[in-house]
Amino acid sequence: MRFQISNLDFFYGPKQALFGLSLNIPTNHITALIGPSGCGKSTFLRTLNRMNDLIRHSHYTGEILLDGQDIRKIDAVNLRRRVGMVFQRPNPFPKSIFDNVAYGLRINGYQGRLADLVEHSLRRAALWDEVKDILHKSALILSGGQQQRLCIARALAVDPEVLLLDEPCSALDPVTTAKIEELMFTLKDSYTLAIVTHNMQQAARASDFTAFMLDGRLIEHRETSRLFTTPSDPRTEAYITGRFG
């Protein structure tokens, strides 16, 4: 188990957003988080790399263990290097493609040849062939799908253990989405992935485990194949058969 989460309550100031969440995120698997919008799945994901620390007056209680270690005891900067994140909208820096991927390496004082690792990361993100001749052009000239894969390459470059994906395909067309799903599949050999999605087909296609959340609570969490075929909770069934949300 990469992440072990128990009794997680999360608060934005006085407002509670997550209630008693307990689940594990297994190593080298893809875990999908589904649920209607506003159910707290993004909040949960952003708790795992302490991104929510940036939001004033937010805090959580309960325990989140990364490789058995409480993440509150890990330095936030270090934690975020180990737990990478890809965001809903592609957000490349307005720098060159190369500099985007190299950014995390540079701040971490990487000693080897930058160019090698940049190439390696771009290959892993299945983007190398498309950009190898324009590495020093601005990342903003790329298409949305390419930008999102660039953001994945950028996250992979610092060699994280976990990759958190926060609705990474919501701004992309179906063809590009398929490409990213394919990419996730190849990544799970070396990384642990957790993906938030509002697209149930995507969760069914691409993940090993699925967690269904509703109003800040975890309703059901099991193997994807079983959750979608024989849901144990009527609310899960209602959601995946499209009766609400």
Partner: peptide, 10 residues
């Protein structure tokens, strides 16, 4: 924490 990280945090 590595020396580099201590430096960066400083």
């Amino acid at each position: 924490m590595s020396v580099r990280l201590v430096w960066r945090k400083a």
